[in-house]
Nucleic acid binder design. Structure first.
Length: 362
DNA sequence: TAAACTAGGCGTATTACATCA
DNA sequence: CATGATGTAATACGCCTAGTT
């Protein structure tokens, strides 16, 4: 006798999953509840959500070959098999989306970045530890002036306490590669080289963080214009905004990885349990087989698990008699399964892929 | 047109600092 | 007050793409 359990597409939702947050990709993947076929797209890189491509300011949708290459592995096949979206949150990958409107260096050269390179005196920050290394002139003025003065009050608020301060590389951080240790030594500064270049790390104010956070929800990467706008609005240096977004992306990814890990663990536990149960079921069936010699006389019969009703049905083998098969009672009715998929948990408040209209200005 | 070069962005790992228990 | 843990701003580096020469 041949036994085959086919655990396939089931229309039953898995109770286990009911509590799991829905994923962004559910609609796309048809929200199918499928069993036992796992395609685990485990990767350090985020797979992309619905909007795989981001329209940049020029309106041209594209995905760079490299990006495509990177993400290709995680692109879900159109199969109806279970798809574990392990990294579903992944917002758009706007990477490279800015390239088409990359500003020339001169276009975005910021006076305060160069003017104050290395010229920010340690004592310029003001009271106590509150050395506002980040502060550029506008902010300083803002601080000195009344909160109700000319500058927009919003901008004013952020100007009061802008932190950070290591970004002495005037935006072109890559130039370290070219310029080598000189720059590094310079930027590192030190006690002996105390021209204000010491790496000071000041926390961003709540308002600044909140604003950045809001911005991150809308788009998790920045084009140069957005960066500049944010920097201006928050009285930060563009480099700080850029760094914040980089770190923010890293944190998001880390968090998602943790979630995925936890989720996989649960998957594993559930599948182990399911496996145990099926093994037991199999043993019972075998025991039944030996206790009912009637079936022994039947030719090979395939027992198939009906995916919809979850009953074990007999599939008549070529030589079996239909009458005998029909007489065979249903052998078992398995308990409802609780597969932990396909809904992988997902971080909340993740930026969605969306065409960035504000880039149109660029 | 292809190749080399340049500039800028991003991801990742790591460091350094601030804060808190 | 000292100290370790934690969070996060900042740096370093490699890789990639697009634009320019």
């Amino acid at each position: 006798m041949e036994l085959a359990l086919t655990l396939g597409d089931t229309s039953k939702p898995f109770s286990f999953l009911d509590k799991a947050p829905k994923m962004a990709g559910d609609k796309e993947s048809g929200n199918r509840d499928l069993g036992f076929c796992m395609g685990l797209g485990v990767s350090g890189r985020s797979s992309r959500g619905g909007g795989d491509e981001e329209e940049d300011g020029d309106g041209d949708k594209r995905e760079s070959p490299a990006t495509d290459r990177r993400h290709h592995q995680q692109h879900h096949p159109p199969s109806t098999l279970l798809q574990l979206h392990l990294l579903p949150f992944s917002p758009t990958n706007p990477r490279n989306s800015h390239h088409s409107h990359k500003p020339s260096t001169s276009q975005f050269r910021l006076p305060w970045l160069t003017d104050h390179l290395g010229s920010e005196p340690e004592s310029s920050g003001g009271a106590g530890r509150g050395l506002d290394v980040n502060r550029f002139p506008a902010a300083e003025e803002a601080e000195q002036s009344s909160p109700n003065s000319a500058l927009s009050s919003f901008q004013m608020e952020f100007g009061i306490r802008s932190g950070g301060g290591a970004g002495f590389r005037s935006g072109s951080h890559k130039r370290v590669d070219m310029e080598g240790d000189n720059e590094r030594d310079c930027s590192r500064g030190s006690d002996d080289d105390d021209n204000g270049l010491t790496r000071k790390k000041l926390r961003l104010s709540k308002e600044q963080s909140a604003f950045l956070e809001e911005s991150f929800k809308e788009h998790n990467t920045l084009n140069p214009k957005q960066k500049l706008a944010l920097a201006k609005q928050l009285n930060l240096r563009p480099r700080q905004v850029e760094v914040w977004f980089q770190n923010r992306r890293a944190r998001t990814k880390l968090k998602q990885t943790e979630i995925d890990c936890e989720y996989l663990k649960r998957c594993c536990e559930t599948l182990t349990e399911e496996n145990r149960r099926l093994q037991k079921e199999l043993q019972e069936l075998r025991a039944l087989k030996t206790s009912q010699p009637f079936y022994m006389q039947l030719p090979a019969t395939t027992l198939t698990m009906c995916p919809s009703c979850e009953r074990v049905a007999t599939t008549t083998a070529p030589a079996s008699s239909p009458a005998a098969a029909a007489a065979a009672p249903p052998l078992a009715k398995p308990k409802p399964r609780t597969y932990p998929f396909p809904h992988a948990p997902q971080l909340h408040h993740l930026p969605q892929a969306q065409p960035q209209a504000h880039q149109a200005a660029s």
